[in-house]
Design a protein around this nucleic acid. Structure first.
Length: 714
DNA sequence: GACTGCTCATGTTA
DNA sequence: CTAACATGAGCAGT
């Protein structure tokens, strides 16, 4: 069976994927290797599709997730097939020198499977079967139907190239003794990350998390050395070499686990998810050799200002073809080749095309934010002439009706930011009464409640007793800016040898305690080690959630690691506090273990042999709570979620008593505008075993977070 | 495979 | 601030 097509109606997606996984089980077991990894059979028999995930909801038409494994037409003479025997010997393990691609070392490398296991490769979670990119026979004869859109498997990691890279890396390893040791083995977290069952959404989130974590850590390492600053490229290569990319096959229509409105900050993120594969090109398409006699088909386009497109309409997009304005050649007419041809074919076929809108990042100069805007189809195409007299191709795409808002949300928030008074259903323009850096809008677009109960808006914490002043606040002698890798900087030392924030100001790692520069430091206010102390930089709004009281969300896009806000209020020494606080709606309790927040550090595990101090054991419980009932800031409105998008980080900068840190919230992942901000409150006061049985007795509350991993109460 | 050309990137410097 | 440029990875096509 060479072709495996999921036809909606015949099976739902769950059944389809279950079928795939089920059919592969025997082979997986047969090929199991003695590695300290969970056997493949323990992989989710029931994985994907979480309840909320519904491909068909985004399209009136049957979703066209044609998944047709055609492995480079190996049976035809013009594409000689690699010798299975020799390629079997050339597994990535044997060709990769030690220390270069450590992640692969512990993963099973199933040998070539019989044809029946080809089904495995069509699952969008191919990451679970890492090294099966080198396919064997699958004659696709009889597959060139009239309309046979199929996927084209992305190039497997090139052994040759990986080897070259590996050598280069090995060389530099030998010559550059400053380079830190790279872990040879995977941490348990990573093994779990790879082997546990995940829904498509969870897999996408885990993959994004891995990429960003690798990127941040690569960036931090690269800063101390003198290498290229393209940490995104390096993170991508690492992921590719270790088969951590997902959705290898090109898919027409929605990509499992990617939701409309999702935002990205690097083109490579789109590549890694299989959402838009070319890392520079604007048109992603199935090449003609894999589609059949009707030629190539476009599957995705990115509109990000490189050409003269109309970027304002949220319902249609006039897209300019590629070519004609190369940096290395004179301007010329566009040709009907590659993406342009694919778009023309798609105009005829009217197949679904994903659209990603690229816009300027409001926080990073010349940075871009990419917004996935869902499915479009080409309505019209024509040729046009530019002002310079060269001909270009134009394609008019129309958004499929009935899809959730994506780019239109972006446009709304842009309008509100320009003039907050245009926010519909706004109750108060600035809840903070101008105490915050930026106004905090209060809105209610679901009910009649006009205001939260009265409280005083403050931006910081108030201590009810004087702090111990035994330990002086940290201070450095840096003249203007603390520099990464500066061993003379006491603030760098105190943070374990690295600055805790990247050059773009995001939190690199979640650590037990983060030390920012203090007022006693000689460095300037522009020093990179001053982030959280400067307060909120986002346009936030407090809104009515309907069923969970007031909540907090942002008009701005938030990248992973970005600072959100402090938890402001009265700091209460826990030993002295009244334990019978009846109403604890506005209490912050530090709770441990904070395992979800530690996942933020995935990439660090790959780089450092001696694990950092950011392990669970090193996080201690602080003997305080913060009461924001009478006085607080936006943080008092942040709701609990079992699948949170924020973490809290203990930060010191204005005194030396580590028992009384500031509680600062940071984004754990990229957060699109208008997405509610949440953190995990932890489990309060429930003895083990009581949780769930007697939720009322333990003062647990029913959780309404709605996530698939909801614990039910908190 | 190996190689080339093409690409709506990204980050730094002039 | 903008432009130029240096570096770069992925992949379709040959």
């Amino acid at each position: 069976m060479a072709i495996l097509i999921w036809i909606p109606g015949a099976l739902d997606l769950d059944e389809f994927l279950e079928f795939i996984v089920g059919s592969s089980k025997d082979d997986a077991e047969a090929d199991e290797q003695p590695l300290d990894l969970k056997p493949l059979k323990s992989l989710s028999p029931m994985f994907p599709t979480p309840p909320g995930y519904d491909v068909s909801s985004v399209s009136a038409d049957p979703p066209v997730v044609y998944i047709t494994p055609i492995f480079r037409s190996c049976s035809s003479s013009e594409h000689p097939r690699p010798d299975p025997a020799s390629s079997a010997q050339e597994s990535p393990i044997s060709t990769n020198p030690p220390n270069v691609t450590p992640i692969s070392a512990k993963f099973p490398t199933p040998r070539h499977k019989p044809a029946s296991t080809i089904a495995l490769k069509v699952t969008p979670i191919s990451v679970k079967f890492p090294t099966q990119r080198h396919e064997d026979e699958s004659s696709d004869e009889g597959s060139d139907e009239d309309y046979n859109p199929c996927y084209n498997k992305r190039n497997p990691p090139s052994l040759k190239r990986a080897t070259k890279k590996a050598r280069r890396a090995a060389d530099s390893n030998a010559t550059d003794i400053k380079q830190r040791p790279v872990r040879r083995s995977l941490s348990k977290e990573l093994v779990d990350w790879r082997s546990s069952s995940k829904s498509p959404r969870e897999l996408v989130e885990a993959t994004m998390n891995m990429f960003d974590s690798l990127r941040r850590c690569t960036l931090q390492l690269a800063e101390n050395e003198d290498s290229s600053k393209r940490a995104d490229l390096k993170a991508s290569v690492l992921m590719k070499e270790n088969n951590l990319r997902i959705n290898d096959m090109k898919i027409i229509g929605p990509v499992p686990g990617v939701e409309i409105g999702d935002i990205f900050f690097y083109r490579l993120e789109l590549n890694i998810l299989g959402l838009h594969v070319p890392i520079m090109g604007g048109v992603d398409y199935l090449p003609a050799t894999h589609v059949g006699k009707d030629g190539s088909l476009a599957v995705s386009v990115i509109s990000s200002g490189g050409y003269d497109n109309d970027e304002n309409d949220t319902d249609t997009l006039v897209y300019t073809g590629h070519g004609g304005n190369s940096r290395y050649k004179d301007q010329h007419d566009q040709k009907l080749v590659r993406g342009n041809l694919a778009l023309k074919n798609s105009a005829k076929k009217k197949n679904q095309i994903r659209v990603v809108r690229g816009v300027e990042d409001p926080f990073i100069n010349s940075g871009k934010v990419y917004i996935y805007d869902g499915i479009y189809r080409i309505e019209d195409s024509w040729m046009d002439t530019t002002a310079n007299g060269f001909s270009v191709f134009k394609y008019k795409l129309r958004r499929e009706p009935g899809q959730p808002d994506g780019f239109s949300v972006w446009k709304m928030t842009e309008k509100w930011k320009a003039n907050p008074a245009t926010r519909e259903k706004g109750i108060t323009l600035d809840l903070s009464s101008e105490v915050e850096n930026l106004p905090v809008c209060l809105v209610n677009d679901v009910g009649d409640e006009k205001r939260p109960s009265h409280f005083e808006y403050v931006t910081g914490v108030k201590y009810l007793r004087s702090l111990s002043r035994n330990k002086p606040v940290q201070n450095c002698k840096c003249p203007s800016m603390c520099l990464p890798g500066d061993t003379n900087c006491s603030c760098v030392q105190q943070n374990g040898g690295d600055l805790p924030y990247s050059s773009s100001g995001v939190l690199v790692k979640h650590v037990p305690m983060l030390y920012e520069c203090s007022s006693d430091c000689h460095c300037s206010q522009e020093c990179r080690n001053r982030v959280a102390q400067k307060g909120v930089k986002l346009n936030l709004e407090v809104f009515s959630t309907g069923d969970r009281g007031w909540g907090l969300r942002s008009w701005d896009p938030i990248r992973a690691g970005a600072f959100i806000c402090e938890y402001a209020g009265e700091v209460i020494d826990e030993t002295n506090m009244n334990t019978n606080i009846e109403e604890d709606d506005y209490i912050f309790r530090p709770s441990f273990p904070n395992d979800k927040a530690l996942r933020y550090n995935l990439g660090a595990e790959l780089f450092e042999e001696a694990s950092t101090d950011a392990t669970a054991e090193n996080f201690k419980q602080f003997p305080i709570v913060i009461n924001a009932k009478e006085a607080g800031n936006v943080a008092r409105f942040i709701n609990h979620s079992c699948s949170p998008n924020l973490l809290w980080q203990a930060v010191q900068y204005d005194h030396g008593d580590d028992n009384y840190p500031h509680i600062m919230f940071f984004a754990m992942k990229h957060i699109p505008p208008m997405t509610e901000l949440t953190y995990d409150y932890g489990v309060r006061g429930a003895p083990p075993g009581f949780k769930g049985k007697f939720p009322q007795a333990c003062k647990l509350r029913t959780c309404l977070c709605g996530s698939t991993k909801c614990r039910g109460s908190f």
